[in-house]
Simulated assay, not measured.
Amino acid sequence: MVSLRNRGRCYLAFVIALGLLGSVLPTLGAAETNQVRVRVNIWVGCVGGLIANGGLDTAPGSIYAKKGLKVSFKIIDDWTEGAAALATSNVDVMLTTDDVWAKDYAQFKARGFGARAFFLVDWSRGADGVIVRQGINALKDLVGNKVAFAPYTPSHFLLWYGLRESGLSSEQRNEIFSNGIHTKDGIEPATLFAQQKVDAAVAWDPDMSDAVAKRSGSRKIYDTRQAKNLIADILVVGDRFAARNPQALVKFAEGWIEGVEFIKSQPARAYTLMGSIKDFNIPTDLAKTMLEGVELADAAGNKAFFGSAGSASDYARIFKASQELYRETGVLKGARSDPEGSVDRKVVDSLK
C-alpha cells in the first residue's frame, strides 16, 4: 500500500512529465507512421486489440500485420504512470476509463497537452466489484471496516457511486474513504483482501475473483452488473499523433473491431490465443469466464456510446459524474471541463 505522500510523489512525477512535453513531442509534417504504441493494464477488455495483434507485439499474419501496422502493447498497471507515458509521447494511445479520463483530461489541458477519447473498448458487466469478508452483507455495512481501493482509478469511482446510492450519510461515506487503505494500483487491493489484511476491497478481474476464491466465506456484494453502464473502458490518443497519423488510427480501430468479431465468431480459438499471450496473465481456462464480465464494443456500440456533438450520451454522462468525484476530493478545481472538448469522433464515424 502507499501513503498519501507517496501518491503525491506519483502525481509530482506526472506533473514533471507534462513539463517535458516541449522536448519530446514529434514535429508536425512528418510522414504518417505505421507504428502505434499502446498503454494497457492487465484487463480482459483489451483482448480485441491483443487478438488483432497476435500478442503484445504484432505477429506475422495477424490482423494488424495485414493492415500494415506495427502495434506494441505496453503493460503499465500504475494509472498515473500510464497518463505520464502518454503525455511524454512514450506511448501514442492510452487505455483508460471514461471516469478516470475526466480527471486526466483536465490535468492535461491545464498543462497544455492535448488528447482526446476516440474509441470505446468495452463496458464492465460484473468484472469490477466490491468484495467483502463474511459478515458484511451490503455497502452500508462498510462503515467501521477497512476497505482497500486504488484512488483515482475505476475502483474509486465505483465505490463512490455505490456508497452515494446506498443511503449512507455524507459523513459516513467520508469515514469509509478516509479510513480506507489506499493502494498504488488496482491489483493490490485484491492481494490484501486475499491475505485477510482488510475487510473489503474494490478490485477487478482476474484479481477480484481470485481473491474471493482464496478467502473462505468471502463474496462479492456489488459490481458493474448492478451499476450498469458506469465503467466504460476507452482509448485516448494524443492530438499530435492523431493529426499526423489519421489513417493509421483508423486502421488501428478497424483492426480492434475485427479482433472483437473474431472472438465472437471463433471463441474457442480466441481463448487459446489469449492464454498464449505472455505476461498478460489470462489463462485459457479462465478466458471464457472472465469475458462474461465485460461487453466488448463493436462499431455500433461505439457510435451509441459517444453519440453526436452535444447529445446526452453515455460518454458525457459518466464524464460529468466523475468530475463531481474529483471535485469532492479536491483533485479538480475551478471550472468544469466540457465533455465535448475531450472527444474526437472522426475515427468512430468512419467505422462500418
Rank of each mutant, 00 (worst) to 15 (best):
A59G: 03
L159N: 10
W204P: 00
H182D: 03
W101Y: 15
A87M: 11
C46M: 14
A321E: 13
R37E: 09
I181G: 02
A201S: 11
I181C: 09
N137W: 03
L163N: 05
A213L: 11
G114F: 03
G48P: 08
E175P: 02
F252G: 00
Y152A: 14
L296G: 02
A232F: 10
N174Q: 13
S350Y: 02
F108Y: 15
Q266L: 10
D78E: 14
N41A: 14
A201R: 02
G19Q: 12
R327K: 14
A248I: 02
G217F: 09
T183Q: 06
I16F: 12
F119E: 00
I136E: 05
D279G: 05
V347A: 00
F305E: 00
G48N: 07
L25K: 15
K251D: 14
K146C: 07
L158C: 10
G48K: 06
A85P: 04
K278H: 11
P26V: 04
E292T: 13
T27C: 11
S276F: 03
F193G: 05
S276E: 14
M274Q: 07
A270S: 12
F305D: 00
S276C: 05
E295Y: 09
I176D: 10
T96E: 00
Q172H: 07
R111T: 00
D239E: 14
G126T: 10
V250C: 01
K214D: 09
V44M: 12
T97P: 01
F305A: 01
A203R: 03
I63D: 06
D92Y: 02
D185E: 12
P151H: 06
R317M: 04
G129Q: 05
E81C: 10
V260F: 02
T97R: 01
S23R: 14
R215D: 11
V250T: 13
G255V: 11
G301Y: 05
A297R: 09
Y11Q: 13
T88G: 06
L332Q: 06
Q266K: 15
G162M: 08
A59S: 13
A201V: 07
H182M: 12
A203F: 06
K352C: 03
Q134M: 08
Y105C: 01
A297H: 08
A335E: 15
K333Y: 02
T183P: 02
G162A: 13
K70S: 15
V198S: 06
M208P: 03
G180R: 01
D223H: 08
Q172N: 06
A316I: 01
F157Y: 15
G238C: 02
I318L: 08
E254D: 11
K264V: 05
A309C: 01
A299E: 13
I282Y: 13
F280C: 09
K67Y: 10
Y105A: 02
G45F: 03
A309F: 07
A190P: 04
S209P: 04
V294I: 14
A13S: 14
Q226D: 14
S178M: 09
A248Q: 11
A52M: 08
K67G: 13
A243N: 12
L86N: 04
A297F: 09
V2F: 12
